[in-house]
Design a protein around this nucleic acid. Structure first.
Length: 270
DNA sequence: TGAATTGTTATCGT
DNA sequence: AACGATAACAATTC
């Protein structure tokens, strides 16, 4: 559920509380989530947090001594706090007990979340594509990336090795804003269309970050972007651009929302 | 009750 | 190698 804007919001909220705090003890209640092993992740014990960041959908905690914790929340993970005398989060899987008496908690109902400890950040982010909001990713470079791929745009944008951070919600929203059908072959885009798609990706991510993310259910309750989504989850409602009813389909086994008038299907499939 | 859902990885087939 | 399809992971909601 958490995509780039939600993880960015989480990182920003955690940063002031976490910077300078020392991890005294790791409590592993679902050891399977700890990689490369629960024993290895205990390497975070005794270290202070000196950096709180994000790469794609990964939350990154920089620790003393050149070590890193990477937290991937996957479907249902949340970052919470536990304090003495307070009710604990309901699905606490990993707890970092800190030197201020509180514990940072990864709460994860579905147990898909993953925590990685490493001294080499490449272990965490090596398979990730470029950061969509980074100036390193120029429209020209993005156009070349697309020109070399035959895949449909939607599964390609969802591929974290191609571009880091988009999930189902913001992929559909970006394609709508760029007026492109999800099944459009990537290599069929003109350089101008590629630049427009990158612009749409950036616009929707920037707006979502400004709104502190999208809150569709209990998993992530603190955002407002759900009030500004134009197609995702809006089957039957009028397209904000042309008024035609939004349609729900399936692309790459994922629920996919489009405006049939603004995003006409590509003529030659594949 | 069972299907859908959500992100990622592994695995098989083309 | 690129790509699609499918299962697995686990729980909750509808």
């Amino acid at each position: 559920m958490p995509e780039l804007p939600e993880v960015e919001t989480i990182a920003r909220r955690l940063r002031p509380d976490l910077l300078g705090r020392r991890i005294l003890h790791l409590e592993a209640r679902w050891p399977r989530s700890l990689t490369p092993s629960p024993e290895a992740v205990r390497g975070c014990e005794g270290r202070a947090v000196i950096e709180v960041g994000r790469r794609g959908k990964l939350l990154l905690l920089g620790l003393e001594g050149g070590a890193w914790l990477g937290v991937h929340l996957r479907m249902s993970g949340r970052m919470e706090w536990a304090a003495p005398g307070q009710p604990e989060p309901r699905h606490a899987r990993t707890l970092w007990h800190l030197d201020d008496g509180r514990a940072l908690v990864m709460d994860d109902a579905r147990k898909f979340g993953r925590v990685t400890f490493t001294y080499d950040m490449k272990d965490i982010i090596d398979n990730l594509g470029p950061e969509p909001l980074s100036a390193d990713l120029s429209p020209a470079r993005f156009a070349v990336m697309l020109a070399n791929r035959r895949r449909a745009l939607k599964p390609l944008l969802l591929d974290q090795a191609f571009l880091a951070g988009l999930g189902n919600i913001y992929t559909d929203e970006a394609l709508f804003r760029a007026r492109l059908h999800p099944l459009t072959p990537a290599s069929s885009l003109s350089p101008a269309q590629a630049a427009a798609l990158l612009g749409a990706v950036r616009a929707v991510l920037a707006e979502a970050i400004a709104q502190c993310g999208t809150s569709l259910d209990w998993i992530y309750p603190e955002g407002h972007m759900q009030d500004y989504l134009r197609v995702y989850g809006r089957a039957g409602q009028p397209c904000p651009a042309c008024g035609a009813p939004i349609v729900r389909g399936v692309v790459g086994q994922r629920g996919t929302w489009t405006c049939p008038r603004c995003q006409p299907a590509p003529s030659a499939p594949g």
